[in-house]
Design a protein around this nucleic acid. Structure first.
Lengths: 205, 205
DNA sequence: GTCTATAAATAGATAGAC
DNA sequence: GTCTATCTATTTATAGAC
C-alpha cells in the first residue's frame, strides 16, 4: 500500500472521465493533464504510458466488482438472495464510478482482438462466480440449470446500457420519447432481479 | 438512387470493419484505404471527411433497422407477434452486418455529449416504435402498461452484447468459463422473446 | 476515377530546469 | 514533485499528375 500523492489521484480521476467519454484511442493525454490541473509530464512521471494508465483504471474498476461478487458467492445466503445481491453488486459499483459503464461497454465492443489477458480474466471470473451461484441453486433444487452466459447477458448488458445512457435519455425525452428518463436505477435493478429469478426458477411458462 | 462505384462500396465495407474494431477515434483512414485495396485519396474523393464517412455508415445501419421495425409496427399481426418480430428484426440486421453490434455499443457508450442529432433521432424512432407496439397491446388488453425504455434495455442490450462478443466468448471458453460459447443466436433470440413477453403479459410475479 | 507525394495538425513521450 | 519546451511519429486532409 504505497502512499498516494494528490496528483496521482487527480490524474486517475481525470483519466477515468476522459477514457469513458472518448474511448482509449480518442482520449488525449494533454486533456487529462489539464483536467487534473497538471501537465502531461506529471502523467508520465506517475505512469509508464497512456496504455499503462488505462490498464490501471480498468484494474481498479474490475477489482471492485470482483471483490463484491466474490463476497456474494462466499456468503451463506439462499440462492435467490445471492442472485439479487450479484445484480446489486454490479449496479452499486457502476453507480459509484460514473465512468464505469461507458468503459465497460467499450471493452465489450472491443470484442475479439484487442482485449488483453487481464481484462479477459476479469470477465471470466465474474462469469464463473455467477455460474457457481446458479449451480448451487440447482443443487439445492431451487433453480433450473441455465447457461451463465445467457443469464449474465440479461443482467450486465441492460445495467450498463441504462447507466451509460443517463445523459442521452434526458435528450431523448426532449426529442419526443416519453418515459425515457422516468425510470430510476433502483426500479431497473428490481426489474432485472425479478426477471432473472423468473428465468432461473423456471417461472416463464 | 445514384450509381454506386465499386470503389465507394469497397470503402464503406472496409470502413465499417475498421470503425467496429477500433472505434471512431481509433480508426485509421489509411488502413481503411488499404483494406479496400485503394489509397487514402480515394476516400476523400468519395467522402468529405472521416466523420462524414462514419456518419454514412451509421445511417445505413440505422436505416435498415428502422425500416424493418416500422414494417413490424405497421403490420396487422397480433401484439405478441409484433414483439417477437421487433426482436427478430434487430437480431437479423445485427447478424447481417458483422460490424453493427460493436458500433452500436460504442454509440451507446458515447452517451451524453457526442451523439449527434441524427443518431439521437434514430434511437428515438426505434424506441417510439416499441412504445407503439406496447401501447397497442395494452389497448387490446394483452399487455400491462410498461416503460418502453426498460423493455428496450432488456432487448437491445443483451442482443448487442451477445453479438459483439462472439470472438471474446470463444476466448473465455478457453480461459475456463464453461458454456460461454455454446449458445446460438437463435437460442438467445428465443430467450429474449420469451422473457420480454412474460414481462409485458405480467407473467413474472 | 485513380494515383503519388506532401502539407498541416495532432498527440504520445522525453529532456532538463527548478 | 512539478514545470516548460521540444522531439518524433502518426494521421487527417489536399494538391496535382495521369
Amino acid at each position: 500500500m504505497t502512499r498516494r500523492t494528490g496528483s496521482r489521484h487527480a490524474i486517475l480521476a481525470a483519466a477515468a472521465t476522459e477514457f469513458a467519454r472518448r474511448g482509449y484511442a480518442g482520449a488525449n493525454v494533454d486533456r487529462i493533464a489539464r483536467a487534473a490541473r497538471l501537465n502531461k509530464a506529471m502523467i508520465y512521471y506517475h505512469f509508464r504510458s497512456k496504455a499503462a494508465l488505462y490498464r490501471e483504471i480498468l484494474k481498479d474498476m474490475f477489482d471492485a466488482v470482483l471483490a463484491r461478487v466474490r463476497d456474494v458467492v462466499a456468503s451463506d445466503a439462499a440462492p435467490d438472495a445471492k442472485v439479487r445481491a450479484f445484480i446489486e453488486a454490479i449496479a452499486i459499483e457502476g453507480e459509484a464510478r460514473p465512468h464505469f459503464p461507458a468503459i465497460w461497454l467499450r471493452e465489450i465492443a472491443e470484442g475479439g482482438e484487442h482485449v488483453d489477458a487481464a481484462t479477459l480474466g476479469y470477465a471470466r471470473d465474474v462469469l464463473v462466480a455467477l455460474g457457481r451461484i446458479i449451480e448451487e441453486g440447482r443443487r439445492k433444487g431451487r433453480f433450473h440449470s441455465a447457461n451463465p452466459m445467457i443469464v449474465q447477458a440479461g443482467i450486465i448488458a441492460p445495467l450498463m446500457f441504462f447507466l451509460a445512457t443517463a445523459g442521452v435519455r434526458r435528450k431523448l425525452e426532449r426529442a419526443g420519447a416519453k418515459g425515457a428518463s422516468t425510470i430510476s436505477q433502483a426500479d431497473l435493478v428490481r426489474h432485472i432481479q425479478r426477471v432473472t429469478l423468473a428465468v432461473l426458477e423456471g417461472r416463464l411458462a
